[in-house]
Design a protein around this nucleic acid. Structure first.
Lengths: 347, 347
DNA sequence: CATTGGCGCTCCACGACAGCGAGTGCTGGC
DNA sequence: GCCAGCACTCGCTGTCGTGGAGCGCCAATG
C-alpha cells in the first residue's frame, strides 16, 4: 500500500534513527537488514518485535522495502534520498588526504588536468569518475598558420582559457609564409577575444583594403576555428569504469551492466544529466532513476560544479551503485571540484 | 594424451577439411560440435561414426578438445592457429565497404584520425578496436611562446609530423612579448628539425652572444618540450570495449572479464604486445594466451602495422574472443591500417 | 499504551535425486 | 575402410524436501 505521497511524512526521532542505521548497515553489508540486526545495532534498547512495527511503518511510507516476504528490508530510492538529505553526517577529508589528492592532479594543461581529476575520483572512490570538460568561450586569444604542404595549412588556435586547438586546412591557393604571418597578425591584432561570429561579420566591412585572397584565407580559418571550438565544446571524460565491474550490485545483472556501459559510450545523455548539476551550487546527488535515465536504475551520481574565476564551467562527479558510502564520496567530489577550480583559475 | 609435439603433425586432406568445418561451425554457433553435425556439414559423405575416429585423432594431436565427456568438440588454441594459418580463406572487402570505412575516418588532425580509426574498427567488427598512436620523432617543426600571465607561458610545439603539443611553463623572470618572439625565432630558424637533446648541447656553445636569461627561457622550453614529446610518445587508444560485454564467451567469466578490462586500463602491457606486431609486415594474429598475457586467454588479437612515408609508426588492431570470424576481421584490420597509412602520409 | 515474547506463516537457499538428451568409444559385421 | 548399434558418461533441468531467516499478528505485561 504505497501512496507515494508527495510531501515527506513526519518521522519521529526513533523512526529516523532506525532508518539511518538500517541504511548504514545495508551500505556496509549489502545484505537486507532484519529486525534482529537493527535491534542490535541501533543503540536503542528495543526488542526485534518493536522494531518490526516501526519497520512496517517505514515500509508503508515507502522508505524501505523487502525483496521478498522473508528477507530483511532494503532502502528504497526514497529511503536513500531521505538518508542523504537529513540523516547523513559527512566527515570532511583530512588535510593529508586533500594534499594527496592535490598532488595527483596534473596541471600541465587543461586536458591533463581534467583527465587526471577524473582518474583521481575513480581511484579514491573505486567507482567511475566523470568530468565534464570546461565550456570554452567562442573567442580566441591567439591564432597562427603553419604551412605543412603546398596547399595544406595547420591552424593553431589558443582559446581565451589557454587551451590549444589545432586543425588542418586545405586551401585553394598557395600562400607564402609571409602571407600567412600577415593574416595571422591581422586576426590577432584586431580581433583577439572576439567571437568568430563577430569577426566574420566585421571582416568584410572593415577590411576593404586587404586583398581578396587574404580574406578568403581568414574566412577559412574562422570556419575551421569555429568548428573546432564548437565541436570540442563540451565532452565528458570517464575513468575507472572497470571499477564498476567489480561491484556485485551492478554486475549481477549482465544486461543492466551493458546498458550502463553503453550509456558511458554515448556521452550525450550523460552530458545532459551532468549539465543539470552545473546549474546548481555545491554537491548534488542523483539517486537511482531520479535522473530519468533507466540504465542508472541502481546507480547514484554524486556531482559538483567547478568554476573558473567564479563562473561555473563544468562538473565533476562519481557514478557508483546506489549502495555507496555517501559520507565518503560526497567530500571527495566536493574537494575535487574545489581543487580543480583553483587549478584552473590561476592561469 | 597430448604430447604437444613441436612440429605440426601431418594432417591428411580429410582431417583438414573436417577441422576446417568444425572450426567454422563452432565460430558460427558457439556450441561444441558433435560428430553428427560434422557429418552433416562437412560435405563429405561420411557417417558420424567414421567422423568420430578422425575427431579422436584430431583430439590426440591437440587441435580440438571436449569440454566434458559428452559434449561435442571445441577448437583449441592450436586448432585455431592451424585454421588461420593454412585453412582460412579470407574474402577481401567490397569496394563499397572500403569507401564507407574511408568515409568514417576523420582527417582533421592526427588525434582524431587515430581515435576515429579505433572507433571504426570496433564498429565494424563489434569487438574492441585498438590503435597505437604514431611514434613521434624527437624534433620539432615549429615552436611558439604565448604569455598567459606574468610568469606563466604557454608553450606550443608543432612536431615534425604536424601534431600540436602544448604545455604551461612557470618562469622566474617576467619576459616581454618581444623577448618571447625573439626566443621562438632563434629556435625556429636555427634548430627546427633537430632533437631537443642536440639543441640543448649546442645552445651554450653557439649562442654566446645571446643574453643569459634568454637561454634560460629556451632551456626551460626545451625541457618542457622534451617531456611533452616523450610523455605522449606512445599510447594506445581503445574503443568499443563495451562490445566485449555482449560476447557470452567472455562475459560468462566475470572475473576474467574484469581482468581483461583491467588490462585495457593499464595500457603498458597491451602496448608491448602491439609493439611486437609493429616489427612485422602485414596482418598478425595472436590467439589466446599466445601473447603471454593471461587476461587474453580467451581472446584473439588481430593487428596490422601502419606507416608514414613507408616507415612503420604504429599498429592498429582488434581484440575479440578467440571465437571470431577471422575471415572478416582480418581484411578489416588490413584495410584500416592501409587507409590510416595513406591518410597520414599525405600531410 | 508502548513494549515484548511467542506462534504460525512465507519464502529463499541448498542439496539430493531422477529423467533426458547429446555425444562419445567401442565392437562386430559388411 | 566404413558404419550401425549399443552401453556409457556427463551436464542440464525440474522436483522435492529440509532448514533457516524474517515477518505479521496477537495476547500478555508493566
Amino acid at each position: 500500500m504505497n501512496f507515494m505521497a508527495n510531501e515527506t511524512p513526519a518521522l519521529n526521532e526513533r523512526a529516523q534513527l532506525l532508518l539511518k542505521t538500517l541504511v548504514e548497515r545495508y551500505i556496509a553489508d549489502g545484505q537486507p537488514v532484519g529486525s534482529r540486526a537493527l535491534s542490535k545495532f541501533s543503540g536503542l534498547d528495543l526488542s526485534p518485535a518493536s522494531i518490526r512495527n516501526v519497520m512496517a511503518d517505514l515500509e508503508d511510507m515507502g522508505f524501505i522495502a523487502s525483496p521478498h516476504t522473508s528477507a530483511g528490508r532494503v532502502p528504497t530510492a526514497r529511503g536513500y534520498r531521505f538518508f542523504v538529505d537529513t540523516l547523513l553526517t559527512v566527515k570532511p577529508l583530512d588535510r593529508i588526504e586533500i594534499n594527496q589528492l592535490e598532488g595527483q592532479l596534473q596541471v600541465e594543461n587543461t586536458q591533463k588536468l581534467v583527465s587526471s581529476a577524473s582518474h583521481v575520483l575513480s581511484e579514491l572512490t573505486r567507482f567511475a569518475g566523470v568530468v565534464v570538460t570546461p565550456r570554452r568561450s567562442a573567442g580566441f586569444r591567439h591564432i597562427e598558420f603553419l604551412k605543412l604542404a603546398e596547399k595544406r595549412l595547420l591552424l593553431i588556435l589558443v582559446t581565451a582559457e589557454g587551451d590549444v586547438q589545432n586543425r588542418i586546412i586545405q586551401t585553394e591557393k598557395i600562400y607564402t609564409p609571409s602571407e600567412l604571418v600577415e593574416a595571422a597578425n591581422i586576426l590577432n591584432q584586431n580581433y583577439a577575444g572576439c567571437s568568430f561570429e563577430d569577426i566574420r561579420r566585421r571582416l568584410h566591412a572593415e577590411l576593404k583594403q586587404v586583398r581578396e585572397d587574404m580574406t578568403q584565407l581568414m574566412a577559412a580559418a574562422l570556419a575551421a576555428g569555429d568548428q573546432a571550438v564548437s565541436e570540442s565544446a563540451e565532452d565528458v571524460v570517464i575513468s575507472g569504469e572497470v571499477n564498476l565491474l567489480g561491484i556485485d550490485d551492478l554486475s549481477s545483472n549482465m544486461a543492466k551492466l551493458r546498458d550502463l556501459f553503453n550509456l558511458f559510450e554515448h556521452r550525450t545523455s550523460l552530458l545532459q544529466l551532468l549539465d543539470v548539476s552545473s546549474r546548481a551550487q555545491g554537491v548534488q546527488i542523483f539517486i537511482g532513476g531520479e535522473a530519468g535515465l533507466t540504465p542508472l536504475d541502481e546507480c547514484s551520481v554524486v556531482t559538483a560544479p567547478y568554476e573558473v574565476d567564479g563562473k561555473i564551467v563544468g562538473t565533476v562527479g562519481v557514478i557508483g551503485p546506489t549502495r555507496m558510502a555517501y559520507e565518503r564520496v560526497i567530500p571527495i567530489v566536493d574537494i575535487t571540484a574545489k581543487l580543480l577550480s583553483s587549478a584552473l583559475t590561476q592561469r
